[in-house]
């Protein structure tokens, strides 16, 4: 009986002392933090991907509250709905931004871009890029070691073993940009998803002269400039033997896709063309192949 009493009293005393110390400490060393930071952080997805440009979700929340403006701030993972909730907490207007997605700008699969050497080093794009031009004749295209796959936190990008190229799962992709950063050749671009997920882009980053590109890859951009001429909206620019479609100006008319002799321009998620136009596409391809031969 006595023993139990001693135990109870001693534990009680220890607890009491601790409580007093904690109480004093919490009052004395208290740091004021804007409660809204916590509130904002709570609505964020907590992926801590860094896609917003701040160190993690709490960093983003702090920046939102402290600057008092949402100008130029976007949580790529949560997208518009999350930004609207953040705006509501802070009493701000949420600025509308377009949803984006990662696109792989290389279409040089094994059949289009034959291998000329075989790389036997460490399995890393960064290492291969810094030492060798890759296994194919193209020194700009995808290396195929999957640094982008390792970088993705959302399991949204995978290597296709048949083509040897990464493929983006549009629904899982949050456009955080980790893959684009990881790619040593800057092949991956974060582009607007486009209306109804439809978009047109040049699937190549090769800046070699046309003849050199053509030799290395059958679907590379040769910088012929046909797409620039055919575009009615002046959305396409040609620089260093490479065409680029400005997503802000592009109206998805797909004229350039038909015009491209190399098939380097891809149009994604469009319904199949009417038979007539399809025939034209085929003739274009045919002329391209005869030109090559």
């Amino acid at each position: 009986m006595n023993l139990i009493l001693v135990a109870v009293i001693s534990l009680g005393v220890i607890g009491l002392i601790s409580a007093v110390v904690l109480f004093v400490a919490s009052k004395k060393f208290a740091v004021y933090e804007d409660p809204r930071i916590g509130e904002v952080a709570e609505v964020l997805p907590q992926a801590n991907c860094g896609g917003c440009g701040y160190p993690g979700c709490s960093g983003f929340a702090e920046a939102c509250v402290k600057t008092g403006s949402l100008e130029g701030k976007l949580c790529p993972v949560g997208g518009q709905p999350v930004m609207a909730r953040v705006a509501a907490i802070l009493g701000l207007e949420s600025t509308a931004t377009e949803p984006k997605v990662a696109v792989v700008r290389c279409n040089g699969s094994c059949e289009h871009r034959p291998h000329v050497t075989s790389y036997d080093g460490a399995h890393s794009c960064a290492i291969m890029n810094s030492t060798y031009g890759g296994e194919t004749g193209c020194t700009f295209g995808c290396l195929g070691c999957g640094d982008c796959v390792d970088a993705c936190q959302f399991n949204a990008i995978h290597m296709n073993p048949e083509t040897g190229l990464p493929e983006v799962d549009e629904n899982a992709c949050t456009a955080c940009g980790a893959c684009a950063k990881a790619c040593p050749r800057h092949i991956i671009e974060i582009r607007p998803k486009g209306k109804n997920n439809r978009r047109v882009y040049v699937s190549c980053v090769n800046k070699d002269k046309g003849a050199v590109t053509r030799k290395a890859c059958s679907v590379g951009c040769i910088g012929c400039g046909k797409c620039v001429k055919v575009c009615p909206f002046e959305a396409i620019t040609l620089e260093n033997n490479l065409a680029y479609i400005d997503p802000a100006k592009c109206k998805s008319c797909r004229k350039c896709e038909q015009e491209c002799p190399q098939g380097a321009i891809l149009a994604i998620n469009f319904p199949p063309r009417k038979p007539k136009t399809e025939a034209t596409a085929e003739t274009v391809k045919e002329t391209a192949s005869t030109a090559e031969a």
């Binding site: 291998h115 000329v116 050497t117 075989s118 290492i127 060798y132």
Partner: peptide, 8 residues
């Protein structure tokens, strides 16, 4: 045959 490339 394709040449093997790797670092030293």
């Amino acid at each position: 045959n394709k040449l093997i490339v790797s670092l030293s």
